[in-house]
Amino acid sequence: MPDGARHLMGLAAAHDARNGGKTFDLSEFPEVVHVYAQQTAASEDIKQLAALARELDVLAVRGLGLIGLKDSLLRSSLARPAEQQGPRVRILLLDPESLAGGVTLSETRLRELSGVCDLQVYRYDMRPTWRVIRVDDTMFVSTFDADWEGHESATYKVMEAPQGPLYRGFQRMFEAMLKEGSRVV
């Protein structure tokens, strides 16, 4: 993996720049168009895109703050005027065997949305690493770590670009998890 890509993912460079290695140049990765310190800094950008979205994919642990609760980040974007069709929404939540209370509450709240948009909710059972919000051709990606939750992590705004590995990689991961997941709504 090139050092620039390693740096974007929070990994150490393969070659130390002090030893003549190539330095990181963001222009080599035109997919990453903005980096926010936390998800809250990206929230207005996410809401604006979601309000007009045709498709919305979410990969989260519980999803309560993203879409499950009435005052969550994305929920208000799904209710649209009767003449405007709601988006197709696909949500991946951690299997509640791993984190029972929050996931089942989120599933209950998400069932309420099935009347206002084409909603699909799935459970996945792998250890959460990434948090992904895809709004049409824009993704907001953050990570889970032992020291922080996904919303506390730096959030990367990633746009689909020709030959761009990040957008396609995250989209492929989401589709594979969806295929392996169990549909609950």
Rank of each mutant, 00 (worst) to 15 (best):
A41N: 13
K157T: 01
E175A: 03
V141E: 00
E160F: 04
P87Q: 04
S153D: 14
L99R: 13
A14Y: 10
T104K: 04
H15C: 13
E112C: 07
K179F: 09
T129G: 13
L178C: 12
Y156R: 02
M126S: 14
H151F: 15
A161S: 10
A154Q: 11
V89N: 01
V103A: 02
E44C: 12
R109G: 10
L113H: 00
E160Y: 03
A14N: 15
A17N: 09
M177T: 05
T129N: 10
G63D: 02
T155S: 04
V184T: 06
Y122C: 02
S106R: 03
E55S: 10
A50Y: 00
Q120A: 07
L49P: 04
R6V: 07
Q38I: 14
D25L: 11
P165V: 15
H34F: 07
L66N: 01
R172K: 02
D45N: 11
E180M: 07
A5L: 15
S77N: 11
L56G: 02
P2T: 15
E149H: 14
P165M: 09
V32W: 02
R134E: 06
W130S: 13
K70W: 06
G150F: 06
R123L: 00
Y156P: 01
K179L: 14
I46M: 05
D25F: 08
V132A: 08
S43R: 12
